[in-house]
Structures are given as C-alpha cells and as structure tokens.
Design a protein around this nucleic acid. Structure first.
Lengths: 108, 108
DNA sequence: TTGACATGTTATGTTTTTATAACATAATGC
DNA sequence: GCATTATGTTATAAAAACATAACATGTCAA
C-alpha cells in the first residue's frame, strides 16, 4: 500500500519563493486565479498559472471550478506529511548540534 | 538584526532527493567526502561534491578538514529554523483541512 | 448572439541545475 | 623524493525550471 516516498514534488514545489508566497496567501483562504494574479502583479499571469500547476501536481493546491472562475484551495496535508516523515527527525537532532559542533570543530 | 528570510537556499538544497539522502546519512554521523562517494557509487564524485557545496552554502553541512580528509558534519539548525518559521504554521492548518475540503469541494 | 472576461494551452527563449571530464593541489607513506 | 590517495577547481554538455507570448476555450451578461 505504501511505496517509495513520493514527496519529491512537494519538496520541489516548496523550493521556489514565489510558490511559498502563494501558499502563504492561500492559507488565509481560497483565492481565484485572477485574484492571485492581481496580488502578484509583478509576475506574468502565465507564470502564476505555471506555479499553480506545480503546486497542484504536488497536491498542495486543489482547484474547484465555479462558473468561469477557478478557486484555488490550500491542501496542507503534504506539508504535514513531509514534516512527519522527514523534518521531525531533524528537529530533535538540532537540539544537540551546537554542543557537538563546539567539541568537534573547536576542540581540536 | 533580522532581515528578509534567507531560507531560500535551504529549501532549494532540500529540493533534490540526492541531497536529502546525503543529509540522512550525515544524520548518523560525520562522513568524509570519500566515504560519501563510496556510498553513492552510482553518482560521479564531482556530482557528490557539487551537492555537498549546495548543502554547505545552505549551511546544512559544515566541513572540517583533517589532514587530507574532509569530514562533513550535518547541521540541522536550518531545518529546525524553516520548521519554526514556516512549516509549523501548516501543521495546525492540516488538522481541519479534510473537513473543510469536504464541504468546500463536495458540498456543492 | 455577441462582446467582455476568466481561465487554459502550446510554443519558445532564457536561466539554473545537474552531471561529467580533465586537470590541479595537497597530504600521506614508502 | 615520489607514488598514491583524498580532495579541490574549471570547463562544458545535457536537462530542468522559469518566464513570457500568442492563441484557444468557455462562461456570463446584456
């Protein structure tokens, strides 16, 4: 039922600042594509849509079409997933890292 | 003292599966560059070093030179940092997302 | 139905990443 | 010293990401 971790598209999607900004906005609530283009007026409309597509393929954004508008919803589950399966293992590690580096790197 | 969040290189560094694999290995303990190349024998040595450079620029790997060997240490603090400043905000959001999507997307 | 509006698709140029090769340095052991 | 080993540097080809333009579809409202 499970398989190779398929969180690559999520990490890839998060790698671009603009896409994280889109997610930050969608966290406040759904937005239409047009609203997003208005907010990010310095980006071409096509660029916004391309970023949306990347986010959608990573399952971070889910779209609901309503008439001629398209409402983009945030789905934060993939982020929670990579946290649970990957990032959390590093949070604990970080606690001891300063002491360890002090002895490893300076205690020469 | 603070400024624009400079976690872009961290997200970018995490975006490649190979680099995450390197971090996973370094989580077990420091490794020399040569040991890493042995472990990832299917990658060219130069490729491994290039990935190490990206990780180092993101401050995720710290190197300590010892004789003619170079020991690569994991630094997990940047990961903790992006968790604290960005990812954690989505973990809570994920809790309600299923219900919300059910009503938003299906309750048409 | 027709014109305006919101969105979608395809193609293309540009830049960045990724991977490798060839060459260079630098420390170790004989 | 000299060969070997470990790592570093520079150059370059291939692939992917990014941004935009031009064109296409589909919906609403008068």
């Amino acid at each position: 039922m499970s398989s190779e971790s398929d969180d690559d598209p999520v990490f890839k999607a998060l790698a671009h600042r603009r896409r994280r900004e889109i997610l930050d906005l969608l966290k406040e609530g759904p937005r239409t594509t047009g609203m997003l283009c208005e907010t990010f007026a310095d980006m071409d409309r096509c660029t916004v849509m391309q970023h949306l597509k990347v986010l959608e393929e990573a399952d971070l954004v889910m779209a609901k079409k309503e008439g001629r508008e398209r409402w983009n919803h945030l789905n934060s589950l993939p982020i929670k997933h990579i946290y649970d399966r990957w990032i959390s293992a590093y949070a604990g590690h970080a606690l001891s890292i300063i002491d360890r580096l002090k002895s490893d790197l300076e205690g020469q």
